[in-house]
Design a protein around this nucleic acid. Sequence first.
DNA 1: ATATCGATTATCT
DNA 2: GATAATCGATATG
Length: 219
Amino acid sequence: MTASNLFTPLARSFFARSPRAVARELLGKILIRDDDDSRLAARIVEVEAYLGESDPAAHAYAGNTARTSVLFGPPGYAYVYFIYGNHYCLNVSCEREGKAGSVLFRALEPLQGIEEMARSREITLSGPRDLPKLTSGPGRLAQAFSITRARDNGRDLTSPNSSLWIGADGFRPKTIQITARIGITKAADRPLRYVLKGNAFVSGRLSRPKPKPRKAFDM
DNA sequence: ATATCGATTATCT
DNA sequence: GATAATCGATATG
């Protein structure tokens, strides 16, 4: 048997669709990191769709640059960006060559390789209640999977021979919840965040739009 | 429990 | 020069 035991890779055509469709369908799938003698696996429980050049919140809004070129390439490839001077975040490209669009991975439920994830995150687990600290949040999951731009940007996520890829195990999501995206200032109200309802590994305080800054008086 | 803030750098204006 | 698809720490109810 091959290293893809238990998990079936997704075809490139899976990603050759709108970011909305891909985001919804990615819920419940598995992100896999295969190294020489170890495997990390975690279920995708929260993602966001970014719509490309027409979406002011998307990096592709600025056009095809050195940073965003993967978004304008073929579907099914990793777009990794560095943010706030501290964190990497993982997307997968969607649509088709020449048309940008992507899905941001926001939270995972760890399945295999929990100890290695904790080492990569440089944290100690006190108990099961600490598990969300591993992969709940885009920066955290990237660190747990040792994802960096240098290592993974442009990587094919459809091949089980890739050290980072996406597979399926037959899991069927029960209820999917759609909310506004988190952490953006432009186009912040559009419902483009997809989560497995009730999953304990979903990031963030449940999406309450920040209460409008309101002055008691004005003069 | 929620709110605010500093860290730290690639990227774009 | 300002900003950012975040996180973790600290402050406050």
